[in-house]
Amino acid sequence: MKKLFAWILALLLLVVVIGHFLYPVLSDQLARRRDAEMMQEYREKTSAMGKEQREKLFAEAAEWNKGLEEIRMEDIFTAGITRTTRDYQNHMNVHSGIIAELVIPDIGVSLPVYHLSTETPATYKLVHVNTSSLPADGSGENIVLAGPGVLKTEGFPGKLGLTDDRMLEELDRLIPGNLVVLNVLDRTMVYRVKGVQMLSPAGLKELDLTPDEGEEKLTLVSQRKDQRLLIQAERIPIREARTLLAENDQATFPSNWQNVLLLGCPVLIAGLLVLWIIELIRGRFYRLPDEGKREDPEQLEKALESMDQISNEINEVEES
């Protein structure tokens, strides 16, 4: 019984240790898969819409943008939803409140952008800030997106953090010149990072994000402890973006040792597991009835006594 308990304890400990290391990767991958599935559904719905309907959505969004006098934002991470028009949720809403897809190739980010709502707050999802322009593919707009970016050291449990809390934690790595891609319906808008700055929530509130005439901007805001990371980007022509992004569009071969590592390790682990199972089965079926059992000390003592007795008898016989 004690042995069984020890085994269970050891197994639990092993699971906890492995889980500790695998959790960030697995949870991140599962969240990405969930997002990818959402985006696939979004793409299918967009594809089924037809060109006229898509154009209509862009026109409606442009009309909604005209109603914005100036673009300022509250600290939506603490203040929540501040101001919204009645029909905000109806614009660009193709599937489950998704407005667009944000892709940042330099940091491997690919996330759906949701309308800001009580179900999808900025502390949980990457959202479009409802006091900024909707992506209407027109001039004079500043699209503000906000998302959680709690650093690994801040989250729960311990140093790992929940996946959705860590959504934009890599945003710190962006530098001026990096490209940010926004896929809206069937259109692609590419922005170049102009500036990265850290602000206090009060500073964020005071910031005037209203674009100048003819400007097309994208602003990303993310949470960093008690500060806010602000990234501003300007739109670039698609031809220029194609040329810049085509540079990285290629495939590479892993080196020999990487190949061996990638292919050999799983096979080796599987093989050892099979071996262990074989050994376990063999041990169970080929074991002798009293093999592995501890010898009874009383019986051992009796046997020793009888041996002494026999040796005495032998001695006596030899003497006689």
């Binding site: 990818a36 985006m39 696939q40 897809e101 892709v103 190739p105 491997g108 690919s110 891609v181 992004l245 085509a246 990285n248 569009d249 290629q250 495939a251 590479t252 071969f253 892993p254 990487q258 190949n259 990638l262 292919l263």
Partner: peptide
């Protein structure tokens, strides 16, 4: 053989 894909050309199919 194993290959690693880079870039944005294949969109979400091959990130």
């Amino acid at each position: 053989q194993l290959v690693v894909a880079h870039g944005t050309g294949m969109g979400d199919t091959l990130p």
